[in-house]
Computed example of a mutant assay.
Amino acid sequence: MPNENVGPSQTESSPEFFISPKEYPYPPVIHPYNRNPNSDRSPLMPLLQFWTWYAQLNIACRPKEAPAEANLHPGLERCSIADDNGDWCGSIVLNSKWVKRCRYAQQELIAISEAKAFSLLECESWTYYIPKERHESEWDVFYVLLIERKEEKWERVGLGKVFKEAFMRTAQWREIILG
Results as ranks from 00 to 15, higher is better:
residue 68 A to V: 06
residue 47 L to W: 14
residue 165 E to A: 05
residue 6 V to G: 12
residue 6 V to C: 13
residue 162 V to A: 00
residue 32 P to C: 04
residue 68 A to C: 08
residue 109 L to K: 00
residue 64 K to H: 05
residue 155 E to D: 11
residue 59 I to V: 14
residue 123 C to L: 10
residue 15 P to L: 02
residue 89 C to M: 00
residue 4 E to Q: 14
residue 135 H to Q: 13
residue 124 E to V: 11
residue 124 E to K: 15
residue 7 G to Q: 03
residue 48 L to T: 14
residue 176 I to S: 04
residue 26 Y to Q: 09
residue 5 N to S: 14
residue 39 S to A: 07
residue 92 I to Q: 01
residue 140 D to S: 12
residue 52 T to K: 03
residue 62 R to E: 09
residue 110 I to P: 00
residue 109 L to V: 09
residue 153 K to F: 13
residue 118 F to G: 00
residue 120 L to S: 05
residue 104 Y to P: 05
residue 136 E to H: 10
residue 170 T to V: 13
residue 41 R to M: 14
residue 103 R to G: 15
residue 130 I to W: 00
residue 145 L to V: 06
residue 179 G to E: 11
residue 129 Y to E: 02
residue 113 S to G: 15
residue 83 D to M: 04
residue 39 S to L: 03
residue 52 T to W: 03
residue 177 I to N: 14
residue 10 Q to E: 02
residue 109 L to S: 03
residue 177 I to L: 11
residue 4 E to D: 14
residue 5 N to P: 07
residue 94 L to W: 03
residue 127 T to A: 06
residue 154 W to K: 06
residue 118 F to Y: 01
residue 74 P to E: 05
residue 58 N to I: 03
residue 32 P to A: 04
residue 154 W to M: 14
residue 104 Y to R: 15
residue 137 S to M: 02
residue 53 W to Y: 15
residue 71 N to D: 11
residue 172 Q to K: 15
